[in-house]
């Protein structure tokens, strides 16, 4: 049986330019947020977390939405690339979700007076984190590729159905989170310089997401090729 000839050691990957650029963009956004954007009037320096927290949350939810979506598409197309993408996106999403869960309390301590508050959106993020840790654990214990992709797709889809329910019940439970200040129908209520910093940060984080997923995807592709080599050599 011929195996796709491929020796991972014969190809030395060059520098990941996209990842470097994304890192630089995030560094620039953080620098601008900390030193070149005035502190917020009431919350003071604690509000700087906002430039990390909200973009992280945006990326976390984006990552999981895309995970669920690519899983659903996999069920119809059975294209291994979709599953690799879902895997990469979920893993990167967990990192950003962890960022949200860490930065939330950092902001909450001075503002709410407690590290952890069972606020609706933070709680939702916590359950999202649990959901996708389960997703990754599941992927870890299913060795067969097709089956793993199928199971993952099912969990991804069910998770997407679940999120609104958790949101609804947690919201009904209580809510303490500051009302959205950017996406507010009555218009943006931040000074323009803050708005600019926020969107820069949002862009930088999204770029970081793309770069991380891209490099994680490359890893998944290498692994699949290696697995194939092992399998066909048997």
């Amino acid at each position: 049986m011929t195996s796709p000839s491929h020796d991972p050691s014969d190809r030395r990957p060059g520098a990941d330019w996209l990842l470097l650029a994304a890192g630089a963009a995030v560094a620039a956004a953080v620098t601008r947020a900390v030193w070149f954007t005035p502190p917020e009037r009431l919350q003071g320096y604690a509000q700087k977390i906002f430039y990390l927290h909200v973009p992280s949350a945006w990326v976390a939810f984006l990552a999981f939405a895309l995970t669920a979506l690519s899983g659903a598409f996999w069920l119809f197309l059975k294209d291994p690339r979709l599953d690799r993408f879902a895997e990469s996106s979920a893993e990167v999403g967990v990192i950003f979700t962890t960022g949200v869960l860490v930065s939330g309390p950092l902001w909450g301590k001075p503002i709410w007076g407690a590290w952890w508050v069972w606020d609706a959106r933070l709680t939702l993020t916590l359950f999202l984190w649990f959901l996708y840790l389960g997703y990754l654990v599941l992927r870890g214990v299913v060795p067969e590729r097709e089956q793993r992709a199928r199971y993952s797709a099912v969990v991804g889809i069910l998770g997407a159905v679940l999120i609104p329910f958790i949101h609804l019940s947690v919201y009904l439970f209580n809510t303490q989170h500051p009302m959205p200040v950017v996406a507010n129908p009555s218009g943006i209520q931040m000074p323009p310089v803050m708005v600019k910093t926020f969107f820069l940060s949002l862009g930088a984080f999204t770029l970081l997401y793309v770069a991380l997923v891209r490099s994680r995807y490359a890893l998944a592709a290498e692994r699949d090729i290696l697995d194939d080599d092992v399998a066909t050599d048997r």
Binding site: F127, G134, G159, F165, I166, L168, S169, V170
Partner: peptide, 8 residues
């Protein structure tokens, strides 16, 4: 896997 789904 199931516990997050039991929240609601």
């Amino acid at each position: 896997l199931a516990m997050p789904f039991f929240v609601p």
